[in-house]
Every structure is written in structure tokens, then in C-alpha cells.
Amino acid sequence: MSTLYLRRRLANRAMVVLSTLATAFGLFWLGWIMLTTLTNGFAAISAKLFTQMTPPPGSDGGLLNAFVGSIVMVGIAVVVGTPIGVLAGTFLAEFHRRSRLGSTIRFINDILLSAPSIVVGLFVYELVVRPIGHFSGWAGGLALSIILLPVVVRTTDEMLQLLPSNLREAAFSLGIPKWKVVTAVLYRAASAGLLTGVLLAVARISGETAPLLFTALNNQYWSSSPNGPLANVPVVIFQFAMSPYASWHSLAWAGALMVTLFVLGLAIVSRAILNRGKVSQ
């Protein structure tokens, strides 16, 4: 008896130590990355960051055009991708929950979810940029929306499936048709989850660089119009970080810090929304 007990205690202790080490290993790199970004980023932050354009080599400047370009393209991606994603997720959860078609679409959606983003960039390059003849913010927004889409599909599907079946039964037993049950009752019940899905998708696309390289490219001047090439934070970070100029380096750090803080903020906000949803249940 006691040897068995001892063995179990030892095995338990060993597992706890191993998993703690694994966690510490993972957190160590995360902490290091965060620390480097924070120290270098905060050192580079100034008021000019939000008031001036990306500078030519060797002179001072900011990232205003890149921030605006990123906001425009992420905005396009959300406006295009969210309705399609929510509708597709509804199709899966409410119309093809257990059908063969449903599981096939879910499988393909999961592939799209993990598709290399550079492939998406090349795809939009061939589809939009080449036929039109120049890089544009529209192409960038479209590429981002393709990356956002499967995230929204997935979360919508899951959040609707999580709703208790008696909620659905209660709504149907009022004699209202399915479209009304979905839009008036189920979307509202799942609203916190749906919103969280969109926020997480925005977090996912706001740091994407590869799909924008082939689509929006970059623009060192002020432009908020998606009809032409558009500056954006990830590509500016990429370009400036690869350059030999110290002033560009510090701007790249500042940009990296802003993207990181933005994503962190989105994560916190979506967590808060989900928790609020739980309390009200």
C-alpha cells in the first residue's frame, strides 16, 4: 500500500516539476520578447509618432500614414469579412450541424484558418493586383478579410452551437420562423461570443505582414485612400527594421510596440466582454 502511495506521489511530483518547467520555458521567451519590445518601443515613442509621416532615411518622422493605412485596411477586412463569416457560421451551426456537407465545410475552413498568410497575399496579388495593374489598399483589405473570415466562421459556429437547445426550443415554440429565431434570439444570446470572435480576428490580422507585401505594398506619403498603395504598420516595421538607419530602427520598434499594445488591448477587451456575458447568464 504505502509503496504504491509513495510511487504515485513521486510520479505526481515529477509531472508537476516537468510541466512547471515547460510552462516556464514558454513564458521565458514570451517575457523576453515583450521586454525587448517594451524597452526599445517606449524609448522610441514621441509625439511625432502620431503626427508625422514616415521619414526618408536619416531624418525624423512618425508613423501617422502607416497607422491610418492599417486602420483603413483592417476596417475593410472587418466590413467585408464579418457579415460573410457570421452568415457562414450560422449556416454551419443552424442548418448543417451534423450533416456531411457541414463537416466538409468545417474541415476546409480549418485548412483556410491555418493557411500560410503569404499564400493569401499571392492569391490576392494574382486576383486583384495584377489585373488592375497596381498595388492598392482594397487588395490589402481583401487579403486581410480572407484571413479574418475563417476565424469568424469558426467562432460563430462554435458560439451558436454552445447555446442550450432549450433556448432554441423556447423560441421555436412561439411559432416564429427560423430566420427570426436566429436573428432575434440566438444572435442576441451569443452576441458576446460573436463580438469576441471578431475582435480576436482583428487581433490576428493587425500584425499580418506577408499578405500586405503583395497587395497594399507601402506608401511613404500621406494617403488614406485605398485606391492606391497604402502604408501600413507591419510592412513599415519590416522595411525599417531591415534598413541600416538608426532612426528607422527606432520607428520600427515604436510600431512594433503599438501593434503589440493594440493586440493586448483587444485580448483584454474581448476577455472582459465574454466574462460580462457569463455573469448575465
Partner: peptide, 19 residues
């Protein structure tokens, strides 16, 4: 749906809608 307007139903656990 016509049937369900004539025959209402109350379920085991309360199911308020989020409104």
C-alpha cells in the same frame, strides 16, 4: 408555426431571451 401559435410551451428550466 400556425400550430405553435395555438399551442404554447413552457420548458423545464427558465429560458429568457437576451433582451
Amino acid at each position: 408555426n400556425e400550430l405553435r401559435t395555438k399551442v404554447g410551451m413552457v420548458l423545464q428550466s427558465p429560458t429568457p431571451f437576451a433582451m
